[in-house]
């Protein structure tokens, strides 16, 4: 099995080096004439006010958490789908229970307006 991952490992190294080599070549070719105006933050020509690292709304956090939960659910279902032909009818109901419990969570989130992007 490991030899299947040899190519992935080598590809990972090459894929990581490829953009770096490109930037390296560009670094040799391109002009380097920085000045304060060029290096200033781009905000359509208006002076930047305050810190760029602003506070974000809880909505992002909530979406991320709902995502984590469903991501884990789908990861659990992938091996089940592969084993599907080998399991019995009862096992299918167990998986359905698994999905339905989490679907209940989705309905709860819906009812509590957690899915609204305000």
């Amino acid at each position: 099995m490991l030899d299947q991952y040899g190519l992935i490992g080598v590809l990972a190294i090459i894929a990581f080096l490829f953009p770096f080599v490109g930037v390296g070549i560009a670094w040799m070719l391109r002009p380097k004439r920085p000045d304060p105006i060029k290096k200033s933050t781009y905000e359509c020509g208006i002076e930047t006010i305050g810190d760029a690292w602003v506070q974000f709304r809880a909505q992002y956090y909530l979406i991320a958490l709902i995502f984590v939960i469903f991501d884990i659910e789908v990861i659990f279902l992938f091996p089940f789908a592969v084993a599907f032909e080998q399991v019995g009818l009862f096992a299918v109901f167990e998986a359905i229970l698994f999905v339905v419990i989490l679907a209940g969570g989705l309905i709860y989130a819906w009812k509590k307006n957690a899915l609204e992007w305000q």
Partner: peptide, 12 residues
């Protein structure tokens, strides 16, 4: 079929 065995394990 290691993955299928994981899947079977989940439901048994």
């Amino acid at each position: 079929d290691a993955i299928a065995q994981i899947g079977k394990g989940f439901v048994s």
